[in-house]
Every structure is written in structure tokens, then in C-alpha cells.
Write a protein that binds this DNA or RNA. Sequence first.
DNA 1: ATCCTATCCTGTAGGC
DNA 2: TGCCTACAGGATAGGA
Length: 302
Amino acid sequence: MPELPEVETVRRALEGTVRGRTVAACWISGHALRGEAPRALVRGLPGRTIGTLRRHGKYLLVDLDAGWTLLSHLGMSGRWLFHESPPMRVTPHVHVRVTFRDGSALWYEDPRRFGIARLVRTAKLGRDPSLAILGPDPIMSPPTGPWFAALARGLRVNVKDFLLDQKKVAGIGNIYASEILHRARVNPRRRTGAVRAAEWDAIAAETNAVLGEAIARMGTTFSMYRTLWNEPGQYGDQLLVYDRADEPCRRCGAGIRRIVQGQRSTFFCPACQPARPAKPAAGVGRTGAGRTGARGRTPKRA
DNA sequence: ATCCTATCCTGTAGGC
DNA sequence: TGCCTACAGGATAGGA
């Protein structure tokens, strides 16, 4: 559920609300989150003050004082909800309740419990096994076509699974992978190693554009995701292909197709994203260095 | 290296 | 109305 734009929306909201607040108490439900109950929070959080809020891919890093960081991942159904004055009744699936000294509270809710919440020494974050394997974050380091092309050289995976691989680029999930490829006009079944330079330029440009636009609209609410204030994200209206099987393509009118890749749904337009790309015009598309995506956006950095 | 399956969980939507 | 199945925004492990 929550991909980079949703996590970034939560990060910004937390920055503006809980930063500087000091934890008075922490309660946990006792249910395990992705393998372990976050018991360490009960002892480790009280007395700590919230500092900087960072994000890498889909991971949220809540820096605390005294050299600790709360590492959070929302999995499929996790959400942090802020309460200026917390309700008396604990709603179902609340697994962590952080109460601040001023009486406000931050609750972590996660029906499917695929999320994680654990305390890590800030100095050792780089060696945390979850974080160490991640590729660069596409907001901090916007990808360019040549960078993607270099990363993809020789790989035989399909380009959709490539975008989903957090070890390559961290933060793109199942919704945005389909959206990016549709806007870049690249068929999701294409072998990564066979994607042309100009197409990588388009993929890079659309990665930057789609993620940026989704953040501006507070993410996509398909069903579960909510902002810190329990509001749905607004990017759902902008989706061009995701969950639109058999509906007309918003660009050309052809029927959107649903296929399964890596056990997960992929949506694409067979007309806009042909299995074989159009031949590049003579003299261009060899290196792609001078070309940008179809919309002419220029990525910032290699 | 890649691909396929299974697993961790609960909620929901759709078919009958 | 209820029962059943399929599927869901993620990540990981094991085996072919």
C-alpha cells in the first residue's frame, strides 16, 4: 500500500507535528509486526524527544535524542495517526501507542501486521540489514536515463520488476511502477537489458514526475492508506492505468490490460506501450544523452 | 542471475 | 443474508 509518496506524506506531516515532542509513555499490543513484537519501544521510547524525520524509499526514520532512531515501515496496511487528544477507546489493530508529555499521541495501526517498528542506534543505521541493501532514494537522488541504463545493463528481468526492486531504486511500488511505465510508453514485459537509452530517459523523467506529483497530492488512497489525520490521498484520480483493467486508456482509448508479473498485478495500455518499441528516428536514440523523456523533463543529477 | 512459490496477516469485494 | 474465493499498496526465504 504505502509507496514512497505516501511515506513522504507521512514524514512531512510528522515533521510538522511531533518533532520536538517528548515521549511520556509507550504501549504495545503485544502482537508481532513482521516477525517481532516491538517490545523494545516500551522501554526505549519514554524520555526521548523527536528530532529529524527522514525517509529512505519506503522506510521512515524518526531520529530521537540520545543516539536512537525509530525505524518504521508501513508494510501493506500500516499507518501512523496523530491525536491531539487521544480517544479513550483503542480501535482494533492499533499496535503501538506513543503518548507525549503534552497529552497528544501517535498511534500505529496495521491490520495485516506486515509493517515494522524498531529502535536502532542512529550510528548503526547504515549497517541495518533492511536499509543497507536499498538502492538510492529517487527523491534525494533523482534518477537519469543514463544512470538507469547503466544499472540495467545485462539484466534479463522485465522492466516492471526492475522498477519494483528496492535494491535498484528504493521506493517505487506496484501502483507507481505501472503508472511510470505507461507515461513513459514502455511495455512492462520488456527485458530490462533491451530497453533503449531514449526509453530510459523517459522512464527516469516519468519516475521523477509521477513521484513528485503524487507527493504533491498526498499520495494515493486505494483503500487503506490515510494521512496522519486519517484523510485519503488525492492522487487516485490521476491514475492512468492502475486498477483500470478493461477501461479505456485515458490517452488513446484502447482497453487497459491486466497481467501478472512476479505474482503481482501489472496494468498497461497495449496500444501506448507496444511489446516492440517503435523504431527510433535515424541518428537519434543511440546514446540518448541529448534526449529527455516524451515530456521534455530534465532529471537533475546522475 | 532469474523465476516461481509460499509465507507472514486481515479486510473487502464479488459470485452464488 | 451468509458462505466462499480471490485478491490487496510489501518483503523475504527457499528451491529449481
